[in-house]
Nucleic acid binder design. Structure first.
Lengths: 223, 223
DNA sequence: ACCGGCCGACGGGGAACACCCGACAGTGAA
DNA sequence: TTCACTGTCGGGTGTTCCCCGTCGGCCGGT
């Protein structure tokens, strides 16, 4: 299966892109495209059936996106290496993708020149990452850790406490919150103190910053 | 120049996509690709030089995006029709694009089947719009109007009032705000009342919702 | 079976805050 | 000049916040 020829599966929901990728890869005699998929679900099915050396996978697909498909293939212990294609330099997705088991990450912009090299490297078992992506990695990791820490703190609260946190951040007063939840304003007070003890939020600005960072305020506000 | 053959210029910053588009359009005998461009700037130059019947233009490009290039070609009174290609159903860009002078709007998803038809229609002077896009038009317009209304309200405030609005939404108390701006808490009170009179924000939740919708809280919070 | 920890729910009281009232000076336009 | 807008401040009353303590229910440990 690997006696010279590198077999490749293409996964992209745009037919034009698949045509283009095919055209580029056909210029390399040691690479053969053995299948195509129009979304993540098809990619997983095809990869398990065809067992290609490399899956060239678009990040943004309708039914199951590239990240989800990567995770799924990893879960199913598919031996294929995965090379992620992305539109621009959306490096924020890099870390979870590598955690999910992707072997490479290529910006479509440079796909014509670098694609063949990237496929070969990934097929050999190496990782292929663009330089900018690597640089963004450290920064991203830190941000994510901080975000994750806050997320963990939030999840350490009880259900009631989370509700109170959200409502305080949204600007409601103690009595208002009590009315909304059918409890006394004094009870709301208790939760405030417990939130303070647990995760250190003391004043309203702390609540608002915390909630904005976790995106807790967008939910109830969408129209 | 239009004695049968439709001349086309391709503008997309991804070489793979250009290859794919070429492959699709080559299947139509009445269409000939006479040029390619790697960004909006090149597209404008090439279009003015080659005067193609149709410019097939990607929406998201680095140097000058499809919308800007469309506006520029319109300004230069280029006779070419413009067919916009977009990744997904990003219908929010539809209205400004049509205003800018685009003749058609095609989702890349369906580019293999519909592209040839779209190019022919646009070349004839018709508009080509996907059905979903048209349906989304009315909804988008409404949303934008509402957002724009709030934006206008915000801009109708004085500089000081805007600051107070932001700080209240961020959760600061009157005295806190006074300290930050070196004014009395009582002065802050006045601004609150004036904001109330001008744009109707009465309670803190109103402030928070308003600020979240206008994205006023993300700015000072990014790290 | 008991004890400590966590959770949901209250209340009192003093300090802090918000809200409505009025006030006044500077600036710029009608 | 008069009027509207802006930036600034104060007084008083009602509301809210914050720290204190309380109580019953539940669950896990010894």
């Amino acid at each position: 299966m690997d006696d010279d020829i590198i077999t490749v599966l293409l996964a992209d929901d745009h037919a034009v892109v698949r045509y283009g990728l095919r055209a580029v890869l056909q210029t390399a005699p040691d690479i053969r495209v053995i299948g195509e998929a129009r979304n993540g679900q098809e990619a997983v099915d095809a990869a398990m059936r065809l067992k290609p050396d490399v899956v060239v996978m678009d990040l943004s697909m309708d039914v199951m996106d590239g990240a989800a498909a990567t995770r799924e293939l990893q879960r199913l212990e598919c031996p294929s290496r995965i090379l992620i294609l992305t539109m621009h330099a959306e490096d924020e997705y890099l870390v979870p993708l590598l955690e999910a088991g992707a072997s490479g990450y290529l910006v479509k912009n440079a796909a014509d020149r670098e694609l063949v090299d990237a496929v070969r490297m990934v097929a050999r078992g190496d990782q292929y990452l663009r330089l900018g992506a690597v640089r963004a990695l450290a920064k991203e990791l830190k941000k994510r850790e901080h975000r994750a820490a806050e997320q963990t703190q939030y999840e350490s609260l009880s259900e009631r406490e989370r509700s109170i946190l959200r409502l305080i951040a949204a600007g409601y007063t103690g009595p208002d919150i009590g009315a909304q939840l059918n409890i006394s304003a004094k009870t709301v007070d208790t939760y405030k103190q417990r939130i303070h003890e647990k995760i250190g939020l003391a004043h309203r600005p702390d609540y608002v910053r915390f909630a904005v960072r976790l995106g807790l305020l967008d939910e109830g506000t969408q129209m």
